[in-house]
Amino acid sequence: MFKYVLKRIVLMIFVFFVILTMCFVLVKLLPQTEAQQFGKDANLIQQRREALGYNKPILVQYGIFLRRTLAGGDWGISETLYRGQEVWDVFVSKLPATLMVNVYSMLFSVPLGLLFGIYAALKKNKWQDHVISTLVMLFISVPSYVYALLVQYILCFKLKLFPLQMNSGTDYFSWSMFVSVVPAVLSLAFGTVASLTRYTRAELSEVLTSDFMLLARTKGLTRGQATVRHALRNSMVPVFPIILGEFVSILSGSLIIEQIFGVPGVGQLYLNSITALDYNFYMLLTAFYTLIGLVSGIVVDISYGFIDPRIRMGER
């Protein structure tokens, strides 16, 4: 087990570096545009380029980049978006908004998803199950921005329950802030609820038909006892890692929901860095998104082994 985890982590770091290198080289290969924001003095610009090492060969620049970023934690200074500010500081200040929206949506959707899934599995092939399965099919297929637009139109505009856009301040725990993130949370939650429901239903209904459930009933447990003590636990084996993976990936958030509801978070920063060609932001956020993806994959894989000791990871 330990060996397997170690192997996965080493592989992850390797992949991370390969991707980072590819992105760095590709960004450096972009045609250089004249930097105009630091005054019109061409001499000054040249001096600055020289000081930042932009005139050195790409490999040398890459060495500097790695030393500065990974060893020193210095990701450079924003050139266009937040001129003159530290990229890392801006990034950290944007993180809470994204985090808040996604944590709320997980808190909302995990219980609901499990509940619906369990209910559908218990009522398998009855009308309740059919209704839930049909809804799940609908909600999984429809793109998240369609709900977002629906939520915005019906709840925010027609019924005027919530503001159209999220508050931009930093008072993350005030009531008005909570109200303003509800639309974004709802739009994010629909899809998660649906996919969790589907997983839970599939797993639980498989477990419910297995032999040990029959044994549990024969030895005198009621249906409820058997379901809670034997079926539910076993069905959580594949479901729980998925929840765990979602919890890691909530850091990265949803670009499109953030865009629609004006969440002042990381996603918007990333989009802006692309349109404004702010490469320091771009590199940081690319590294961030890649890392999140890699870590959530590993967490899912490893948690299988921890949750169910019967699964020996890394065996052939």
Binding site: M22, L29, L30, L255, T286, Y289, T290, G293
Partner: peptide, 19 residues
């Protein structure tokens, strides 16, 4: 394939757009 599959799609798309 392992390396390629881990590259976030949004990064690929934006890099290709830029390049």
């Amino acid at each position: 394939a392992d390396i390629l599959v881990d590259v976030p799609f949004i990064v690929v798309a934006s890099l290709f757009q830029l390049h």
